[in-house]
Simulated scan of single mutants.
Amino acid sequence: MQGYVQIYTGNGKGKTTAALGLILRQLGAGGKIFMGQFLKQGDYSEITMLKRFPEQITIEQFGLGKFVRGNPSDEDIEAGRKGYERIASILKNGEHNLVVMDEGNIAVFFNIISEDEMIKLFDTKADHVELVITGRGATPAMIERADLVTEMTEIKHYYQMGVKARTGIEK
């Protein structure tokens, strides 16, 4: 089966959730999955659940999880660079059916991964591997090169009323 490049971007909620839906399908089909979370650190409900399938899915976090509204530190950049190298290797070896770069677009936005490096991943992945990249701000060049792009548009969100992220819904 041919693998494609999918991007989930935009300011609306649901980018990581859409990728998790693909992970769920791949688990049901017996596939092998790698999920790398850029700029994130910590326990999210989805990680707790996915750890129940250790033979099928590997999840690694490549971030310190603390500069969401600032600039990445040298340590954040180093963690992201390690993540890029890890995913580049995984995509080439072709062991996985699905590779998710959660917040990969944000890693490009903050120049942790260059746009050229990201696009190179599109070209060097094993043919059967599906690559999914999430996060706000996908670049025009990445959008042009991807096979499927979905933009999540925020129309209304209860965050605007002061509602914090809820376990099991947003985290």
Rank of each mutant, 00 (worst) to 15 (best):
M1L: 09
M1D: 02
Q2M: 09
G3L: 05
T9V: 09
K13L: 05
G14D: 03
T16S: 14
T17K: 06
A18Y: 04
A18S: 15
A19P: 09
G21Y: 05
G21Q: 05
G21F: 06
L24S: 14
Q26F: 04
A29M: 07
G30K: 05
G30E: 07
G31I: 06
G31P: 04
I33H: 05
F34Q: 01
K40G: 06
G42M: 07
D43K: 13
Y44S: 09
E46Q: 10
M49G: 06
R52E: 01
R52S: 04
F53I: 06
E55D: 13
Q56S: 13
Q56W: 04
I57C: 05
Q61F: 08
F62D: 04
G63E: 02
F67D: 02
V68E: 08
N71I: 05
N71R: 11
N71A: 07
D74W: 01
I77G: 03
E78A: 14
E78Q: 07
A79D: 00
A79K: 02
G80I: 00
K82A: 11
K82T: 11
G83T: 00
G83D: 00
Y84K: 00
E85S: 05
R86S: 05
I87M: 13
I87W: 14
K92H: 08
H96E: 10
N97Q: 15
V100F: 14
V100N: 14
M101Q: 08
E103S: 09
N105C: 15
I106A: 11
I106P: 11
A107E: 08
V108Q: 03
F109P: 00
F110C: 03
F110H: 13
N111Y: 10
N111G: 03
I112T: 03
S114D: 07
E115N: 12
D116G: 03
E117S: 02
M118I: 00
I119Y: 00
K120D: 00
K120P: 01
L121W: 09
A126Q: 11
A126W: 01
H128M: 11
E130T: 12
V132R: 00
I133D: 06
I133V: 15
T134H: 12
R136W: 10
G137M: 06
T139M: 06
I143G: 09
E144N: 15
D147P: 13
M152T: 07
M152N: 10
M152C: 14
T153G: 11
T153Q: 15
T153V: 15
I155N: 15
I155D: 14
I155Y: 08
K156W: 08
K156I: 10
H157W: 14
Y158T: 12
Y158D: 04
M161C: 07
V163F: 09
V163K: 01
R166T: 08
I169C: 00
K171P: 00
